[in-house]
Amino acid sequence: MASRRVRLPGADEIFRPTAPKPPGKAAAPAAAPATAPTAAPVPTQTALPVPAPAAVPVAAPVAGRRPTGRQRHDSKITVYVSAGELLDLERLRLTLRAEHALSVDRGRIVREAVAAILADFEVRGERSTLVRRLRDGEG
């Protein structure tokens, strides 16, 4: 009789190394997990109001400040967002796909946003959108 026990993937099947590989060494592709991971509860937080696009001009990225786009990324960060922020991000992704024929993932949208806000900060400094929003959020 076969075991009815569910086989769970091992750590080496779930996690892949994020350190850069030495030249000439290809990373072995990570195997897909046998089961879908369970979503962890998302901490709640109050989102800052987002101004209309015309109200806050963002400078075009300066030389060297382009997002990386579709490539393998070796560094990773974890960002916690509220359920509403995640829903807004997913709606944006679907709108980009439906109305602009841009099939991008959430990571690409976030990398584009980071590149834009860094470029704006480099150009405008104290008057940048980032500094204004962070100051407005204090208190």
Results as ranks from 00 to 15, higher is better:
33 P>W: 01
76 K>F: 00
48 L>S: 15
18 T>W: 08
72 R>H: 10
26 A>I: 09
18 T>E: 11
14 I>F: 08
57 P>W: 02
52 A>K: 04
35 T>N: 01
32 A>C: 13
43 P>A: 01
36 A>C: 02
28 A>T: 11
51 P>M: 10
26 A>N: 10
19 A>F: 14
46 T>W: 03
45 Q>H: 15
62 V>A: 12
21 K>I: 04
36 A>D: 06
65 R>T: 06
54 A>T: 13
52 A>G: 06
38 T>S: 12
15 F>T: 10
72 R>N: 05
72 R>E: 08
31 A>I: 06
69 G>I: 04
27 A>W: 01
42 V>L: 06
32 A>T: 15
65 R>V: 04
56 V>F: 01
52 A>H: 07
25 K>A: 11
28 A>Y: 03
27 A>Q: 10
42 V>A: 02
56 V>S: 03
17 P>A: 11
39 A>F: 04
69 G>D: 05
73 H>N: 05
22 P>T: 02
73 H>Y: 01
37 P>G: 08
51 P>C: 10
37 P>E: 09
76 K>N: 01
31 A>V: 14
33 P>Y: 01
67 P>D: 08
69 G>R: 03
29 P>C: 06
32 A>M: 14
52 A>V: 02
64 G>C: 06
46 T>F: 04
66 R>D: 12
39 A>L: 14
28 A>C: 03
38 T>F: 13
18 T>A: 13
40 A>P: 02
23 P>A: 15
69 G>A: 12
46 T>L: 12
40 A>Q: 06
22 P>H: 07
62 V>Y: 03
32 A>Y: 09
33 P>R: 07
47 A>F: 06
73 H>L: 02
15 F>S: 12
62 V>Q: 10
72 R>A: 09
49 P>L: 05
75 S>C: 11
74 D>G: 10
18 T>C: 12
70 R>M: 03
42 V>D: 02
53 P>Y: 05
18 T>D: 08
64 G>F: 08
26 A>V: 11
34 A>D: 04
37 P>M: 07
41 P>I: 08
27 A>T: 03
50 V>P: 00
71 Q>K: 13
28 A>R: 14
54 A>Q: 12
74 D>I: 09
16 R>I: 07
72 R>V: 12
70 R>V: 05
69 G>C: 11
56 V>L: 06
61 P>I: 00
66 R>E: 12
23 P>I: 09
22 P>Q: 07
73 H>Q: 04
58 V>I: 15
58 V>G: 07
43 P>M: 00
69 G>P: 07
53 P>H: 10
37 P>S: 08
76 K>V: 01
